[in-house]
Amino acid sequence: MKIGLFIPCYVDALYPQVGVATYKLLKSLGLDVDYPEKQTCCGQPMGNAGFQNMADELVENYDKLFKDFDYVVAPSASCAAYVKLFHPNIVNHECKAAQKTMDVVEFLHDVLQIKSLPSKFPHKVSIHNSCHGVRELHLSSPSELNIPRFSKIKDLLQLVEGITILEPERVDECCGFGGMFSIEEPAVSVRMGTDKLNRHLATGAEYITGPDSSCLMHMQAIAKHQNYPIQFIHVVEILAAGL
């Protein structure tokens, strides 16, 4: 199985360790993983701001780079969702690469269906169910819907030895990042983030973990500003812990 690794721009620049963990984990599962070097961004920042038309070339480039892989895996639910759901509309044609793009949680849970992991993480973690992970990719059951409850993130984390998994009250309320929203509505965004952080803290967790480093980045920036005693870690870093 040939896997294309998509490391979105901000993960690339700010959280390379998340990319490294993804690569290690996929390789440890015996997969053929490659990282096409000419990749940049999924285009969501522009689309979010109202300029998705400026992302058309980038979308074509993404399709060209990744179309021949069996799967494209990204450690970022929001970016994977943007590729999957928005790319075809931006360029007005079917995008092969977009159809094969998955968030790493989705890929491990649904495609590989892994049942064991060698990793250990003897800590209390609070899961951050990010909006696009929940409501666009269905990594967990959205709290608004009357459907059987599930969480692919929890399923995977439960394979890790020593971990204590917690979830905050208001289990999938938005943290207020929202891309351009965070700088256009800073007052609301920071308030949402502070509220969310406090609910995570109330679980007694040592770490906040989630499938989107963007939400984690936002909450981390607030936590740092207010000296909150909590750490942040991407789900895939926990799954790859000890590799």
């Binding site: 490391i7 390379p16 700088i183 920071v190």
Partner: peptide, 16 residues
């Protein structure tokens, strides 16, 4: 707008 109530994110020494 980011700096209102938030610290700036830190760029990694080496990108992926």
């Amino acid at each position: 707008g980011w700096a209102q109530g938030r610290e700036m994110p830190v760029f990694a020494k080496q990108s992926f």
